[in-house]
């Protein structure tokens, strides 16, 4: 037990301290639970209302997963296109930079008209959020080749397809892993923001409903779950990144 607990406290004491401070502050200041509930009450709400939380979480997770995979594939696909053709690079790069600098919140009403006030738009938003890092990092990664390898493939008379599959894509793996890490951490948050603003379904809609009912414990419970899962996804993808660096770097 001590063996498990010690590293846990060593790595997480900052967050534990924050939770303790939160609990102490609410208890000592005597704030109303509607304004600020205690963290233990939030955890208790999650624990006793799992049948309410879990289906909402499932919807949000599914939207985030589809969005992450979709955005990643789209970013990688366009990254390969700019690798293969300078004309495509000249056309795509400014458009994607422009697209990524528009705040996502302003896109939601437009996308909702196109895809409807439902999961379709939520997925579309997470695609947009995950797409940009995948595009940027795959474009850079496909060009980060081991020294001399491009000349070697040319002298061996390699086709463009062979250069892509045997050289550029494996060389891009560490960069793709970084894109995955950035995307994974943000995909669920993006899905939740979209759900919140449209009030459709999932944890975001649950948050919006709880907020309007002054059920602050529920609202914070939804946030806590999203934060914890985003952190877990981030840590998992960090592992993937370390592996990719060791294997392909």
């Amino acid at each position: 037990m001590d063996r498990l607990l010690r590293p846990f406290i060593r790595d997480w004491w900052g967050i534990l301290l924050l939770l303790l401070a939160w609990q102490a502050w609410v208890v000592l200041s005597g704030l109303n639970a509607i304004v600020m509930p205690r963290p233990l009450d939030v955890v208790a709400d999650i624990a006793t209302n799992l049948p309410v939380y879990l289906p909402a979480l499932g919807i949000s997770l599914a939207a985030a997963a589809f969005g992450l995979v979709g955005g990643f594939m789209l970013g990688l696909g366009l990254g390969i296109l700019t690798w293969a053709s300078t004309i495509a690079a000249g056309m795509l790069t400014p458009v994607t930079v422009l697209f990524s600098s528009v705040p996502v919140v302003t896109l939601i009403p437009i996308l909702a008209r196109l895809f409807g006030y439902g999961p379709g738009t939520v997925v579309a938003i997470t695609v947009i959020i995950s797409f940009f890092p995948a595009f940027v990092f795959s474009s850079a990664g496909l060009r980060a080749l081991p020294p001399g390898s491009a000349d070697l493939f040319r002298v061996l008379g390699a086709s463009r397809w062979r250069v892509l599959t045997s050289l550029a894509l494996p060389a891009a793996m560490p960069n793709l892993a970084v894109a995955l890490r950035i995307g994974a951490a943000h995909a669920l948050l993006a899905a939740m923001v979209a759900e919140y603003l449209m009030g459709s379904s999932g944890l975001g809609a649950m948050f919006a409903a709880a907020k309007s009912e002054l059920n602050t414990e529920r609202a914070l419970g939804a946030s806590l779950i999203v934060a914890a899962i985003s952190l877990t996804l981030y840590l998992l993808s960090l592992r993937v990144e370390h592996w990719a660096r060791a294997r392909y770097g």
Partner: peptide, 19 residues
């Protein structure tokens, strides 16, 4: 000659693929 893999090359950069 390159198109039919007639060359063998070894440069100062060993150009081994790390993966």
């Amino acid at each position: 000659v390159a198109a039919r893999q007639g060359f063998g090359v070894a440069f100062q950069d060993h150009a081994l693929l790390p993966w």
